[in-house]
Amino acid sequence: MKKLEGHIAEVMKGIINDEPETTVTEDVEADPELRQKLLQVKKDILDGKTYTTEEVIEMIDQGEV
Rank of each mutant, 00 (worst) to 15 (best):
E54M: 01
K3E: 15
Q62C: 00
T52E: 00
I57A: 00
P20H: 10
P32A: 13
D31V: 03
L39E: 12
V65A: 08
D18A: 14
Q36R: 13
M12Q: 10
K3Q: 15
E64K: 15
V41E: 06
T50L: 01
P20V: 12
P32V: 06
T53V: 11
E54I: 01
A30E: 10
Q40H: 04
M59P: 03
D18W: 02
L34A: 15
K37M: 09
T50C: 05
E33I: 11
K2W: 11
Q40L: 10
Q62K: 09
I45G: 03
D61G: 01
Q36H: 12
L39C: 03
T22K: 14
E58I: 00
K49V: 10
L4C: 05
G63Q: 02
L38F: 07
I45W: 02
E19Y: 05
E10P: 06
K2N: 12
L4E: 07
T50V: 15
Q36Y: 03
I15P: 00
T22Y: 11
L39N: 08
T50N: 06
E26Y: 05
K2M: 11
M1A: 13
G6W: 05
M12P: 01
I16W: 07
V56T: 02
K43G: 04
K49R: 12
D47E: 14
D31P: 02
P32M: 08
L38Q: 08
E29C: 01
K3R: 15
K43N: 07
V65R: 12
T25D: 14
D47T: 07
M59L: 11
R35A: 15
E58Y: 00
T50A: 03
D61A: 04
R35Y: 04
G6P: 08
K13Y: 08
G6N: 09
L39P: 00
V56R: 00
G48K: 05
N17W: 02
K13L: 13
Q40G: 07
H7L: 12
K37N: 06
I8F: 11
E19P: 05
V65W: 08
